[in-house]
Write a protein that binds this DNA or RNA. Structure first.
Lengths: 336, 336
DNA sequence: CTGAAAGCGCTTACAG
DNA sequence: CTGAAAGCGCTTACAG
């Protein structure tokens, strides 16, 4: 079906080398020849076969993106930033879902390496990274996003979860908040751990003793947020300020509040990691720690492109992007 | 760096043909030879180069996915379904963001064709489809998702927006609802049009005259939902039942309600297209029309795989998947 | 400025 | 059961 470079060469009465040069914008080609080739190209509706090109050139202009979940706001914003930046340089993005499994993550890595991707960006599924070394062995640059892993180091782009949480809690404490609860994730998850550490440290430094029964840990999903909030609010002396360590648990909390309106302390205040569409919806005053998600994606792409270019300066580079605190205190402020 | 089939052949003392056969699980290979090859493979850590393989075999085992927006829950769920099903058959997915532009959509299509993808799945960005014919000309199967386009027909997987809306509104009307408002999208968008038609037709058939000032149209984004709901609710005689034509406008509506609680008619009822994480949050009783989004993605993948297999039976096949109505009336029911 | 030719790493019909 | 060889569609040093 598709015309090949040979067909174009025949049609234009030149060699395939010449056609290749025209297609690749080689300068030293006479205008006349160039035009004849171009005519043949459009006559035959020729499109370059990048598979053949890649075999020769050893570059596929494609980058793999591995994530623990792909139907997830955080992930898709990262993906968007990645695709944006890659697209600007003519690269495309192959997305693989590791479904929270290190095993599948490894399989994904192998698949991508067989596909000869020029680079890989991964949001790690687990806390270990031994298997990720595969990429580097194959000399394919690998950039981590959102989480760091044990036993393996490479470039990474993320935020300082600990510091961001620390700052937010400190700010609230100095602003008069004294009774804190925490709805967190499992400690084997990197971000869950960092956020908890920041929280606890802030309380310590502010001289506020954490109360055991106010520190609850779930699984970063909606239901978990709902139930832990229920647990907190049904205690005889519930915390007045609740820090929620991720967006999905935050949704669960908002859900709980929207149903229990009557039984909620009137001075309840929420602080939550991540700022998404729904962070503004809660009718309870709140503070969100916003990650620059698009930027995380773009920076990761930038980094992988740099390494693909062969620039290995200051590898491994762990880049921590700044977060922002967004407050929803006055209802008239967050009308769109 | 990477060992090639030649290296393996040399190491094992066989021809490259034999190595290829072992790697591809050709049956007629003696166990002894097979073992020697396998040993060489693992010794050299050999991985097949699929670029070379594809050049020979004319198949890349990859499918392109083009969408008007990739940081969007609906899209990502489709993508998830697609990736799931493709993965089962050893195919991978290249994602391209058309950013709501037909021009970029066409560029994306060309890019994917140059990459020699075996098939393409697209959520169209615009209402016209002339440029999509490119794929079919190149004999690459193309499956549409969510929307149909003008001037171009091919396989598609979507829901019956008109019918689903019609049924929901009819059900509410026969249940006693009499005062309907509508928050819709622009009529040039396929889904916006179908949903509006279903709504109007249902009112007609129920003998409820639609009131002009209760029919508002926005742009399918959050802010738009907020403002149109504000407009409706500030009218002297606001509608008691509001149908919202997409999820993002629904979020805007929920936001408005959560801030204006006092000024909302106590008998307000919402009906909305799509059922997502937040559909359950509203404290107003509501009905969601749920699309089987994962299934849409899986079916689209299934269809494109079928066409890749060369099975062209009953092309073009427009598959309309069933929707479900989900009601959130009793607060105790939607506790997770 | 242009072409002949080698070669990228595989697969596969053909022959034995 | 195994190998020699052609060829997939390009690019690119080399020569002119």
């Amino acid at each position: 079906m598709g015309a090949t470079i040979k067909d174009v060469a025949r049609q234009a009465g030149v060699s395939t080398a010449t056609v290749s040069r025209v297609v690749n914008n080689d300068h030293r080609i006479s205008p006349a020849t160039r035009q004849r080739v171009l005519d043949a190209v459009s006559l035959l509706n020729y499109k370059v076969n990048t598979v053949a090109r890649s075999l020769k050139s050893k570059r596929t202009l494609s980058v793999g993106l591995i994530a623990p979940e792909i139907d997830n706001v955080f992930f898709m914003r990262v993906a968007r930033g990645v695709e944006d930046r890659l697209g600007e340089e003519g690269y495309s993005m192959i997305v693989v879902n590791a479904r929270e499994s290190e095993l599948r993550e490894e399989a994904a890595l192998e698949l991508l390496l067989e596909k000869q991707v020029d680079g890989i960006i991964a949001i790690p599924s687990g806390s270990r990274g031994d298997h990720l070394a595969l990429a580097l062995q194959a000399r394919v640059p690998l950039v981590l996003v959102d989480r760091l892993v044990e036993n393996f180091t490479t470039d990474a782009v993320l935020v300082d979860n600990r510091e961001a949480t620390y700052r937010a809690i400190t700010r609230l404490a100095t602003g008069g908040h004294r009774s804190f609860g925490f709805i967190g994730g499992q400690p084997h998850i990197f971000t869950a751990r960092e956020r908890y550490q920041g929280f606890i440290q802030a309380l310590r430094d502010q001289g506020i003793p954490p109360r055991e029964e106010h520190l609850l840990f779930g699984d970063f999903h909606i239901e978990s947020g709902y139930h832990l909030m229920k647990n907190l609010m049904e205690q005889p002396d519930p915390p007045r300020t609740v820090m929620i360590a991720n967006y999905f648990m935050h949704i669960g909390v908002i859900r709980y509040i929207s149903f229990q309106r009557g039984q909620i302390p009137p001075d309840l205040y929420l602080a939550a990691f991540d700022n998404m569409e729904f962070s503004a919806v809660s009718s309870v005053p709140s503070l969100s720690i916003a990650q620059p998600i698009d930027q995380i994606g773009r920076h990761a792409a930038e980094r992988v492109l740099q390494r693909i270019q062969g620039d290995n300066e200051n590898w491994p580079c762990i880049e921590r992007l700044p977060t922002k605190e967004i407050t929803y205190n006055d209802q008239h402020h967050h009308q769109p």
